[in-house]
Amino acid sequence: MTFDWSPVLLSLKLATITTLVLLIVGTPIAWRLARLRHWIKQPLVSLVALPLVLPPTVLGFYLLLVLAPNGFVGQIVKGMGLGTIPFTFPGLVIASVFYSLPFAVQPLQNAFEGLGERPLEVASTLRATPLDRFFTVVVPLARPGFLTAAVLSFAHTIGEFGVVLMIGGNIPGQTKVLSVAIYDHVETLEYDQAHVMSAGMLVFAFTVLLVLYAVNGRIAVAEKS
Protein backbone atom coordinates (compact mmCIF):
# COMPACT_ATOMS: atom_id res chain seq x y z
CA MET A 1 0.00 0.00 0.00
CA THR A 2 1.48 3.31 -1.03
CA PHE A 3 0.21 6.06 1.17
CA ASP A 4 -0.61 9.35 -0.50
CA TRP A 5 0.43 12.19 1.78
CA SER A 6 -0.78 15.03 -0.41
CA PRO A 7 -4.32 15.27 1.10
CA VAL A 8 -2.78 15.41 4.60
CA LEU A 9 -0.37 18.19 3.64
CA LEU A 10 -3.12 20.04 1.80
CA SER A 11 -5.42 19.93 4.82
CA LEU A 12 -2.63 21.17 7.10
CA LYS A 13 -1.83 24.01 4.68
CA LEU A 14 -5.50 24.96 4.37
CA ALA A 15 -6.04 24.92 8.14
CA THR A 16 -2.89 26.96 8.82
CA ILE A 17 -3.73 29.69 6.31
CA THR A 18 -7.39 29.76 7.36
CA THR A 19 -6.41 30.10 11.02
CA LEU A 20 -4.07 33.00 10.28
CA VAL A 21 -6.71 34.78 8.20
CA LEU A 22 -9.32 34.17 10.88
CA LEU A 23 -7.13 35.59 13.65
CA ILE A 24 -6.51 38.71 11.57
CA VAL A 25 -10.14 39.11 10.47
CA GLY A 26 -11.80 37.68 13.59
CA THR A 27 -9.98 39.77 16.20
CA PRO A 28 -11.37 43.18 15.14
CA ILE A 29 -14.84 41.67 14.66
CA ALA A 30 -14.74 40.08 18.12
CA TRP A 31 -13.38 43.27 19.67
CA ARG A 32 -16.05 45.40 18.09
CA LEU A 33 -18.80 42.98 19.11
CA ALA A 34 -17.50 42.78 22.67
CA ARG A 35 -17.60 46.59 23.03
CA LEU A 36 -20.87 47.13 21.20
CA ARG A 37 -23.77 48.51 23.29
CA HIS A 38 -26.50 48.76 20.67
CA TRP A 39 -29.50 46.70 19.61
CA ILE A 40 -27.61 45.76 16.44
CA LYS A 41 -25.29 43.61 18.58
CA GLN A 42 -27.62 40.60 18.81
CA PRO A 43 -28.30 40.43 15.05
CA LEU A 44 -24.55 40.70 14.35
CA VAL A 45 -23.69 38.01 16.89
CA SER A 46 -26.34 35.78 15.32
CA LEU A 47 -24.92 36.45 11.86
CA VAL A 48 -21.43 35.37 12.93
CA ALA A 49 -22.83 32.23 14.58
CA LEU A 50 -24.79 31.14 11.46
CA PRO A 51 -22.25 28.55 10.22
CA LEU A 52 -22.74 26.68 13.52
CA VAL A 53 -26.37 26.02 12.64
CA LEU A 54 -26.51 25.95 8.84
CA PRO A 55 -25.92 22.72 6.97
CA PRO A 56 -22.61 23.02 5.06
CA THR A 57 -24.62 22.45 1.90
CA VAL A 58 -26.35 25.80 2.34
CA LEU A 59 -23.03 27.58 2.60
CA GLY A 60 -21.66 25.55 -0.31
CA PHE A 61 -24.67 26.34 -2.46
CA TYR A 62 -24.49 30.10 -1.92
CA LEU A 63 -20.72 30.19 -2.30
CA LEU A 64 -21.04 28.32 -5.58
CA LEU A 65 -23.59 30.85 -6.82
CA VAL A 66 -21.75 33.95 -5.62
CA LEU A 67 -18.26 32.83 -6.61
CA ALA A 68 -19.26 31.43 -10.02
CA PRO A 69 -17.74 33.28 -13.01
CA ASN A 70 -21.14 34.85 -13.69
CA GLY A 71 -21.89 35.36 -9.98
CA PHE A 72 -21.60 38.59 -8.03
CA VAL A 73 -18.14 38.09 -6.55
CA GLY A 74 -16.99 35.92 -9.44
CA GLN A 75 -17.48 38.75 -11.92
CA ILE A 76 -15.49 41.19 -9.81
CA VAL A 77 -12.63 38.73 -9.44
CA LYS A 78 -12.73 37.91 -13.12
CA GLY A 79 -12.71 41.65 -13.89
CA MET A 80 -9.53 41.96 -11.88
CA GLY A 81 -8.03 39.20 -14.01
CA LEU A 82 -7.66 36.73 -11.16
CA GLY A 83 -9.42 33.82 -12.86
CA THR A 84 -12.06 31.70 -11.17
CA ILE A 85 -12.39 30.96 -7.46
CA PRO A 86 -14.28 27.66 -7.21
CA PHE A 87 -12.10 24.54 -7.57
CA THR A 88 -9.00 26.42 -6.46
CA PHE A 89 -7.06 26.45 -3.22
CA PRO A 90 -7.80 30.16 -2.56
CA GLY A 91 -11.47 29.30 -3.07
CA LEU A 92 -11.23 26.74 -0.29
CA VAL A 93 -9.58 29.31 1.98
CA ILE A 94 -12.47 31.74 1.39
CA ALA A 95 -15.03 29.03 2.09
CA SER A 96 -13.18 27.86 5.21
CA VAL A 97 -12.96 31.38 6.61
CA PHE A 98 -16.75 31.71 6.45
CA TYR A 99 -17.26 28.18 7.69
CA SER A 100 -14.99 28.51 10.74
CA LEU A 101 -15.69 32.18 11.54
CA PRO A 102 -17.70 31.55 14.73
CA PHE A 103 -14.95 29.25 16.03
CA ALA A 104 -12.56 32.19 15.98
CA VAL A 105 -14.88 35.06 16.88
CA GLN A 106 -16.78 33.52 19.78
CA PRO A 107 -13.82 32.56 22.03
CA LEU A 108 -12.19 35.93 21.33
CA GLN A 109 -15.38 37.83 22.05
CA ASN A 110 -15.86 35.93 25.31
CA ALA A 111 -12.27 36.65 26.30
CA PHE A 112 -12.62 40.38 25.50
CA GLU A 113 -15.90 40.64 27.38
CA GLY A 114 -14.34 38.86 30.35
CA LEU A 115 -11.67 41.54 30.67
CA GLY A 116 -14.05 44.26 31.78
CA GLU A 117 -13.31 47.98 31.57
CA ARG A 118 -10.88 48.21 34.45
CA PRO A 119 -7.55 47.17 32.82
CA LEU A 120 -8.18 49.48 29.88
CA GLU A 121 -9.06 52.43 32.08
CA VAL A 122 -5.91 51.92 34.08
CA ALA A 123 -3.87 51.70 30.89
CA SER A 124 -5.34 54.90 29.49
CA THR A 125 -4.59 56.79 32.72
CA LEU A 126 -1.00 55.75 31.98
CA ARG A 127 -1.44 57.45 28.59
CA ALA A 128 -1.37 54.28 26.53
CA THR A 129 -2.72 54.82 23.01
CA PRO A 130 -5.65 52.58 21.96
CA LEU A 131 -3.31 50.44 19.84
CA ASP A 132 -0.84 50.22 22.72
CA ARG A 133 -3.62 49.27 25.08
CA PHE A 134 -4.74 46.52 22.75
CA PHE A 135 -1.37 44.92 22.22
CA THR A 136 0.15 45.35 25.69
CA VAL A 137 -2.96 44.86 27.83
CA VAL A 138 -5.74 43.11 25.95
CA VAL A 139 -3.73 40.56 23.98
CA PRO A 140 -1.77 39.17 26.96
CA LEU A 141 -4.86 39.08 29.17
CA ALA A 142 -6.96 37.42 26.47
CA ARG A 143 -4.31 34.82 25.70
CA PRO A 144 -6.53 31.80 26.48
CA GLY A 145 -9.14 33.25 24.10
CA PHE A 146 -6.59 33.55 21.29
CA LEU A 147 -5.33 30.06 21.92
CA THR A 148 -8.84 28.60 21.89
CA ALA A 149 -9.76 30.56 18.77
CA ALA A 150 -6.65 29.41 16.92
CA VAL A 151 -6.94 25.76 17.92
CA LEU A 152 -10.67 25.51 17.21
CA SER A 153 -10.37 27.29 13.84
CA PHE A 154 -7.53 25.00 12.86
CA ALA A 155 -9.27 21.82 13.99
CA HIS A 156 -12.63 22.79 12.50
CA THR A 157 -11.02 23.52 9.13
CA ILE A 158 -9.22 20.17 9.17
CA GLY A 159 -12.62 18.56 9.76
CA GLU A 160 -14.36 20.49 7.00
CA PHE A 161 -16.08 18.27 4.47
CA GLY A 162 -19.44 19.29 3.04
CA VAL A 163 -18.46 22.72 1.77
CA VAL A 164 -15.27 21.39 0.19
CA LEU A 165 -17.18 18.60 -1.50
CA MET A 166 -19.48 21.16 -3.07
CA ILE A 167 -17.03 23.79 -4.26
CA GLY A 168 -13.69 21.94 -4.25
CA GLY A 169 -14.01 19.69 -7.27
CA ASN A 170 -11.76 17.02 -5.73
CA ILE A 171 -8.57 17.98 -7.64
CA PRO A 172 -5.58 16.02 -6.27
CA GLY A 173 -3.01 18.33 -4.70
CA GLN A 174 -5.25 21.37 -4.99
CA THR A 175 -8.64 20.74 -3.45
CA LYS A 176 -8.62 17.07 -2.47
CA VAL A 177 -8.31 17.54 1.28
CA LEU A 178 -8.04 14.83 3.91
CA SER A 179 -11.75 14.46 4.68
CA VAL A 180 -12.61 14.17 0.98
CA ALA A 181 -9.80 11.67 0.44
CA ILE A 182 -11.17 9.51 3.26
CA TYR A 183 -14.64 9.70 1.72
CA ASP A 184 -13.21 8.65 -1.65
CA HIS A 185 -11.33 5.72 -0.15
CA VAL A 186 -14.39 4.50 1.75
CA GLU A 187 -16.63 4.79 -1.30
CA THR A 188 -14.18 2.84 -3.45
CA LEU A 189 -13.77 0.21 -0.74
CA GLU A 190 -10.09 1.07 -0.19
CA TYR A 191 -10.48 0.51 3.50
CA ASP A 192 -6.72 0.24 4.18
CA GLN A 193 -6.08 3.85 3.21
CA ALA A 194 -9.30 4.96 4.86
CA HIS A 195 -8.20 3.27 8.08
CA VAL A 196 -4.79 4.93 8.14
CA MET A 197 -6.22 8.40 7.50
CA SER A 198 -9.18 8.01 9.84
CA ALA A 199 -7.13 6.64 12.71
CA GLY A 200 -4.67 9.48 12.18
CA MET A 201 -7.50 11.98 12.35
CA LEU A 202 -8.86 10.39 15.51
CA VAL A 203 -5.51 10.67 17.28
CA PHE A 204 -5.03 14.21 15.96
CA ALA A 205 -8.46 15.42 17.11
CA PHE A 206 -8.06 13.91 20.56
CA THR A 207 -4.57 15.37 20.98
CA VAL A 208 -5.71 18.82 19.91
CA LEU A 209 -8.56 18.86 22.40
CA LEU A 210 -6.42 17.41 25.18
CA VAL A 211 -3.72 20.03 24.69
CA LEU A 212 -6.30 22.79 24.51
CA TYR A 213 -8.07 21.80 27.71
CA ALA A 214 -4.80 21.12 29.54
CA VAL A 215 -3.24 24.46 28.59
CA ASN A 216 -6.39 26.45 29.31
CA GLY A 217 -6.77 24.62 32.61
CA ARG A 218 -3.20 25.52 33.56
CA ILE A 219 -3.70 29.16 32.61
CA ALA A 220 -6.87 29.29 34.71
CA VAL A 221 -5.05 27.75 37.69
CA ALA A 222 -2.10 30.11 37.27
CA GLU A 223 -4.40 33.13 37.17
CA LYS A 224 -6.22 32.10 40.32
CA SER A 225 -3.08 31.60 42.39
Partner: peptide, 16 residues
Protein backbone atom coordinates in the same frame (compact mmCIF):
# COMPACT_ATOMS: atom_id res chain seq x y z
CA UNK B 1 -14.03 15.68 -10.35
CA UNK B 2 -17.71 15.60 -9.51
CA UNK B 3 -18.85 13.21 -6.85
CA UNK B 4 -21.31 11.87 -9.42
CA UNK B 5 -21.93 12.69 -13.08
CA UNK B 6 -24.83 14.78 -11.74
CA UNK B 7 -22.47 16.99 -9.77
CA UNK B 8 -20.13 17.25 -12.75
CA UNK B 9 -23.08 18.43 -14.81
CA UNK B 10 -24.08 20.95 -12.15
CA UNK B 11 -20.51 22.35 -12.12
CA UNK B 12 -20.77 23.01 -15.86
CA UNK B 13 -24.40 24.18 -15.91
CA UNK B 14 -23.70 26.71 -13.13
CA UNK B 15 -20.78 28.07 -15.16
CA UNK B 16 -18.22 27.17 -12.52
Amino acid sequence: RGDTIAQAFQFVASGN
